[in-house]
Amino acid sequence: MLTLVLKDILTQKKKLWLIVFYGVFMHVALYSLGDAGAYGSATVGITYIFVLGACAHDDKNRSEILLNSLPISRNSLVMAKYLTSLWFLAIGLIASTLVGTVAHFTGLDRGLVDSETLGIMVFIGLLLVSFYYPVYFLFGYLKARYYHTLLFILAIFVPGLLATMANRVGLPGWLGYFLEWLNHSHGTMALGFIGAGLLLFIISLFISLKFYQKREFA
């Protein structure tokens, strides 16, 4: 399975040097979203580009036909893709954190990553992957292309929009109490985000395993 992860990295090796550029671009372009928004969006942006890139390479030359002709189970192919996404998420986290930290120490108005922000970064990254892969494994890259564009826009902008709306309109009572409780413990909040993200990730994996068993390569 690790060979398949290596394949997804090797096919995109040309793009790897662009990671820092993407990080800087996202931090600058989404400056107005605040620390959590910018760190989160930069992470999601980088994860998105590489996860989608790996799927696009499988689609080019219809390489899924090659993979499915090798002695590998379809389950292994799906699990390898999920594993690859964790690797790219880790790269996104590191790059986003590095860029933000450099910005902080060069005197720009950017805070350092705290546990809460880290939790949000992981959560949004896992959320994106969890919603993208089942549709990709069911329909393939080409048919899922409009869906993933929409998903990316949602992943980048919806968290910021929701935060703004919550500030203006106010939150329902129970949600306010819940968030206040989480706010008392940044560690708990971070773990909550990561836990929720991982739960979605695992559910998504099981859905994808089921979908991919039914895929046909005409």
Binding site: T3, L4, L6, K7, L10, T11, Q12, K13, K14, H57, K60, N61, R62, S63, I65, L66, S69, L70, P71, I72
Partner: peptide, 22 residues
């Protein structure tokens, strides 16, 4: 197969390294 399904971006050796372990 009738057309190439290998990964364009990889060299012959890299592609072999991906396929051989299976």
């Amino acid at each position: 197969y009738d057309e190439n399904h290998f990964y364009d971006e990889l060299t012959v050796l890299e592609m072999k390294k991906i396929v051989a372990p299976f």
